[in-house]
Amino acid sequence: MARTGGDEGQDPGGPEFDPPFEVLEPVALTSAVVLSSPHSGRVYPSRFLRSARLDAASLRKSEDAFVDDLFEPAVSLGLPLLRAHFPRAYLDLNREPYELDPRMFEGRLPAYVNTRSVRVAGGLGTIARVVGDSQEIYAKRMSVEEGLRRIDELHKPYHAALQELLHRALRRFGLAVLVDCHSMPSSSVTGTADPTTWRDEKTKADFVLGDRYGTSCAPLFVDVAESELRRFGYAVERNKPYAGGFITEHYGRPGAGCHALQIEINRGLYMDERAIARGPGFDALSRDLHAVVEAVSIAAASRGSERMAAE
Rank of each mutant, 00 (worst) to 15 (best):
K140H: 05
A52S: 15
E16T: 12
R150K: 06
E25R: 11
K202H: 07
E311D: 12
F66P: 00
M104R: 04
N266P: 14
V208S: 14
A89T: 09
T203F: 01
V120R: 02
Y138T: 09
R171T: 06
P195Q: 13
F86Q: 12
T215L: 15
L154I: 13
G244D: 14
I263H: 11
A28W: 06
L285P: 03
T115E: 14
P26S: 10
S188H: 04
R141D: 03
L29M: 07
E136Y: 07
W198L: 02
A111V: 07
S297T: 06
V67E: 12
P219A: 06
V33I: 08
A205D: 10
K156W: 11
A243E: 13
R231H: 14
P12H: 11
E226H: 00
E294Q: 14
G14Y: 13
C181F: 10
A65W: 11
L269W: 14
A277M: 14
K204Q: 15
G233I: 14
D92Y: 12
G257K: 06
L165I: 09
G281S: 15
L165Y: 06
A89F: 03
H259M: 02
F246K: 04
A65G: 04
T126H: 00
P45I: 11
G191S: 12
E96N: 06
E16D: 12
D152G: 03
G9A: 15
F105K: 03
T126E: 09
G78E: 05
E164I: 00
A300R: 04
R50D: 08
L35H: 09
P15T: 12
S305F: 06
V177S: 04
E201L: 09
E153M: 14
G268V: 10
E201V: 07
L54D: 07
E8W: 06
E228G: 02
T196Q: 07
V177K: 08
V118A: 14
V292E: 11
T215D: 13
Y242Q: 08
G268K: 07
P97G: 08
Y44K: 01
F207M: 10
T192K: 07
R238D: 15
E294M: 05
Y98T: 05
D69G: 05
K204M: 15
G279R: 03
L170Y: 00
H159W: 09
G281Y: 15
E72L: 13
G125V: 01
A309H: 07
L82A: 02
F71M: 08
D11C: 15
F105R: 03
A121E: 12
D200S: 05
R129C: 05
N266H: 15
I151W: 09
S297Q: 02
K202M: 09
V177N: 08
H182W: 13
A161Q: 10
G279Q: 02
F48W: 07
K202C: 04
V189Q: 14
L79P: 01
E99F: 01
T248V: 15
V75T: 15
P102K: 01
F232E: 13
V75G: 04
R53I: 11
